[in-house]
Design a protein around this nucleic acid. Structure first.
Lengths: 134, 134
DNA sequence: CTCTGTAATTAGACTAAGTCTAAACTTGTA
DNA sequence: TACAAGTTTAGACTTAGTCTAATTACAGAG
């Protein structure tokens, strides 16, 4: 079992590992809750010695998405969520709570679409909705 | 070929067909462009004798979604789009333009997910992304 | 070491999308 | 014809996110 190190990950992806970026990345690696920008700000600001502004959270999330360190997830109107799981996967949204769960690509049947030749498909995402116990 | 009548549709779905609601519904039935609330306001306000405020557009869209006359579509962060096609279908997003196209459920292979028994799946939506000519 | 230029961070103003409120208007029914 | 309930309205408000201009941090050159 190899613990993922935020700083190494950032270096590997070509992102300068500033304290703020490391801390945000660590938080995202540590949770599966798909937090929003505001949730990240609240969590990280309280827990850390380093200062952190709203603007930096947004700047950092943008940088991390562009570098492929994290993914932006849009499951509901009005806000984005962020996910450090960048493996090929889909999502399950609990319609009662709004919670989002990762569904690895391997556990679903591949989707094939028969479209006319104008369409060039680069990929797809499946969002399941329903309820989950616990 | 039977032309869809907005007023009849609203009555059938139990929504009182006020002029504003009829006009918004007609516009959504007439387009496949998946407009945002602001686009709807712009289009409908200019074209019609009846007055129309922002609040009414939002109220009406909410009413129509709840009545099952239209669907809310979330394909990008920050805004919702609306779709009068309420048949079972998925979406294709052109990543160059942001345009959204309907993909009938029949032209894709059904998605099966093997999840543990905590999950109860009520449905799913597939979003394809890529590019489309024209 | 220190200097320096570039990149990162910051507070707070600003924007965009959507909600809320309280008043005015419409309309079906009595 | 009047009323009660439902609908629409302008505009204030909220929330999520962007932008700006100034400050701070830091890697590399000398």
């Amino acid at each position: 079992m190899h613990e993922i190190n935020a700083e190494e990950l950032l270096l590997k992806k070509g992102v300068k590992p500033t304290p703020q970026r490391v801390v945000i990345t660590e938080y995202l690696l540590s949770t599966h809750s798909h937090p929003t920008a505001d949730e990240i700000l609240d969590e990280v600001k309280n827990a850390l010695p380093v200062s952190l502004s709203r603007a930096t959270v947004y700047n950092t999330l943008k940088t991390l998405v562009e570098a492929g360190v994290i993914q932006e997830v849009v499951t509901e109107p009005g806000r984005s969520r962020y996910d450090a799981n960048v493996s090929d996967h889909h999502h399950f949204v609990d319609t009662k709570t709004g919670a989002v769960f990762d569904i690895p690509a391997e556990v679903i049947t591949p989707v094939k679409a028969t479209l006319d030749e104008r369409y060039k498909i680069d990929g797809y995402k499946v969002v399941f909705f329903g309820t989950r116990q616990d």
